[in-house]
Amino acid sequence: MEVTGAEFSRLADPPDPELVLRVVITGTGFEQRAVPILASVGDVPVEGLVPTVDGEGLVGLLAEHPPVGAELVIGYASREPLSTGITYNPPIS
């Protein structure tokens, strides 16, 4: 699995009032397995990760804004998460 980018956006009409951000994670090698893919940005877990329609990434939701500069980590639940080097910057809009 290789992560090449992440885009954060505010949810205008969230499915749950507790969720405030959407993240679209792009990259390659996101295999669907019985063991789920987990991600977090700093200490904030990414919830409800699902593959994008084109299969080139994942989409998930966050319940709070992580600290600026918090790193996105991702991996399968059965393994140590991978450092991506991608950090959180708040969405402009």
Rank of each mutant, 00 (worst) to 15 (best):
P81I: 00
S83A: 12
T26Q: 09
T84E: 11
M1K: 08
I37E: 04
G60Y: 07
V68C: 05
L21D: 10
V41Q: 02
E31T: 14
A77I: 06
L72R: 06
D16C: 11
L21M: 08
P81W: 08
I37R: 03
S40G: 07
R22K: 13
F8V: 08
I92C: 12
Q32T: 15
E64G: 09
V53G: 07
P91Y: 05
G57H: 06
G42C: 01
S78H: 08
L38M: 09
L61W: 04
P17Q: 12
G29L: 08
I25W: 05
P51T: 10
G57F: 04
G27W: 05
F8E: 11
V73M: 03
L61Q: 06
V59P: 01
E18H: 11
R79L: 08
D16I: 10
G60C: 05
G29P: 13
V24A: 13
G42T: 02
S83R: 15
G5I: 04
I74L: 15
V46S: 02
V44Y: 09
T4F: 05
D16G: 14
P45L: 00
E80N: 10
G55C: 09
N89S: 15
S78D: 15
V3A: 10
G75M: 12
S78Y: 02
P14Q: 05
I92D: 14
F30Y: 11
G27Q: 10
P51N: 14
G57R: 06
A12V: 13
I74K: 06
L21E: 03
G48K: 09
L38K: 13
E18I: 04
R79A: 13
L58I: 02
E7T: 15
V24T: 15
